[in-house]
Amino acid sequence: MRFERALCALVLVGLAGGCTSDPADPAPAASGREESAAAPPAWTEPAAYTFTLVRGCDEAAPVGRYQATVKDGVVTGATRSGGPAASAAPSAEVDLGPVTGDEGEEIDVPALGQLLEMATTAQEDGAEVTTEFDQADGHPVKVSINVTDTPAGAECWTVADYKA
């Protein structure tokens, strides 16, 4: 839930900050799929699957890595891997937001269908969205959403170890 609120806040800040579009720029593809010579097959979310979600645009230093299990489009289990979960300082008497700043906040891991819906919604709201798909079966392998005017404002998710 906190992740959804944070993303909504980012979208609102981007819109309030004066997101504009240049009429000379071509409109983004309605599907949000990357254009390529050989388009990947259309992906349909399977009834059950597992994957690793890596959060962060810097592959050398990701913000978080999560192992997820999905059944019927809903994440039924997700655990942080590759490091301890962020935790509040013992002296913290109130919730002041993310434990280690925006970069350390734990997230509600989305199912891949939810991640694609989030990308579509952000694109419809004017964000710059890039989505890459697996060439073999069409599942999403990387999603980048930027609601700001700077490259550093992007939020990225990479999918690895996908098994249907």
Score class of each variant (00 low, 15 high):
residue 69 T to F: 04
residue 119 A to I: 08
residue 124 E to G: 15
residue 122 A to P: 07
residue 82 G to S: 05
residue 88 A to F: 07
residue 93 E to N: 10
residue 57 C to M: 09
residue 88 A to W: 06
residue 114 Q to S: 09
residue 75 V to L: 06
residue 73 G to I: 06
residue 84 P to L: 12
residue 115 L to R: 03
residue 66 Y to V: 01
residue 101 G to Q: 08
residue 59 E to G: 14
residue 99 V to N: 13
residue 108 D to N: 05
residue 112 L to G: 07
residue 70 V to S: 10
residue 98 P to D: 15
residue 64 G to Q: 06
residue 118 M to F: 00
residue 100 T to D: 15
residue 57 C to D: 11
residue 94 V to N: 15
residue 90 P to R: 08
residue 99 V to G: 09
residue 81 S to E: 11
residue 91 S to K: 10
residue 65 R to L: 14
residue 71 K to R: 14
residue 71 K to H: 08
residue 93 E to I: 08
residue 56 G to C: 12
residue 124 E to N: 15
residue 69 T to M: 00
residue 63 V to A: 14
residue 104 G to W: 05
residue 106 E to P: 03
residue 125 D to F: 13
residue 108 D to A: 10
residue 83 G to N: 08
residue 69 T to P: 01
residue 76 T to M: 07
residue 55 R to M: 08
residue 75 V to D: 05
residue 63 V to N: 14
residue 67 Q to E: 15
residue 125 D to I: 02
residue 90 P to T: 08
residue 72 D to N: 09
residue 122 A to N: 04
residue 55 R to V: 11
residue 99 V to H: 14
residue 116 L to S: 07
residue 109 V to T: 01
residue 96 L to G: 08
residue 89 A to E: 15
residue 113 G to P: 06
residue 68 A to M: 04
residue 61 A to I: 06
residue 109 V to Y: 00
residue 88 A to V: 11
residue 57 C to R: 05
residue 101 G to D: 07
residue 86 A to W: 01
residue 123 Q to A: 13
residue 74 V to L: 11
residue 69 T to H: 07
residue 94 V to D: 12
residue 81 S to F: 09
residue 64 G to M: 02
residue 109 V to K: 02
residue 62 P to D: 09
residue 94 V to Q: 12
residue 106 E to Q: 09
residue 105 E to Q: 15
residue 96 L to K: 11
residue 126 G to A: 08
residue 77 G to E: 06
residue 104 G to Q: 01
residue 76 T to W: 01
residue 106 E to C: 01
residue 108 D to Q: 11
residue 115 L to N: 07
residue 73 G to A: 03
residue 78 A to G: 03
residue 117 E to H: 06
residue 66 Y to R: 00
residue 72 D to W: 01
residue 124 E to R: 15
residue 115 L to V: 07
residue 53 L to R: 05
residue 64 G to T: 02
residue 115 L to I: 07
residue 62 P to S: 06
residue 79 T to P: 02
residue 79 T to N: 08
residue 96 L to P: 01
residue 104 G to T: 00
residue 60 A to M: 13
residue 103 E to K: 12
residue 67 Q to D: 15
residue 57 C to W: 02
residue 59 E to D: 13
residue 101 G to N: 05
residue 91 S to L: 10
residue 55 R to Q: 08
residue 70 V to Y: 09
residue 90 P to V: 07
residue 83 G to V: 04
residue 106 E to D: 09
residue 58 D to G: 10
residue 107 I to T: 14
residue 83 G to E: 03
residue 100 T to W: 15
residue 105 E to F: 14
residue 99 V to Q: 15
residue 83 G to R: 04
residue 84 P to Y: 02
residue 104 G to C: 00
residue 102 D to Y: 09
residue 115 L to P: 02
residue 85 A to C: 00
residue 113 G to V: 05
residue 91 S to N: 12
residue 102 D to I: 12
residue 85 A to F: 00
residue 114 Q to E: 10
residue 55 R to A: 11
residue 84 P to G: 09
residue 108 D to C: 02
residue 61 A to S: 13
residue 119 A to D: 10
residue 125 D to Q: 14
residue 86 A to D: 04
residue 61 A to G: 05
residue 87 S to M: 13
residue 97 G to Q: 01
residue 98 P to A: 15
residue 123 Q to V: 02
residue 122 A to E: 04
residue 121 T to Q: 12
residue 106 E to G: 14
residue 102 D to E: 13
residue 75 V to G: 05
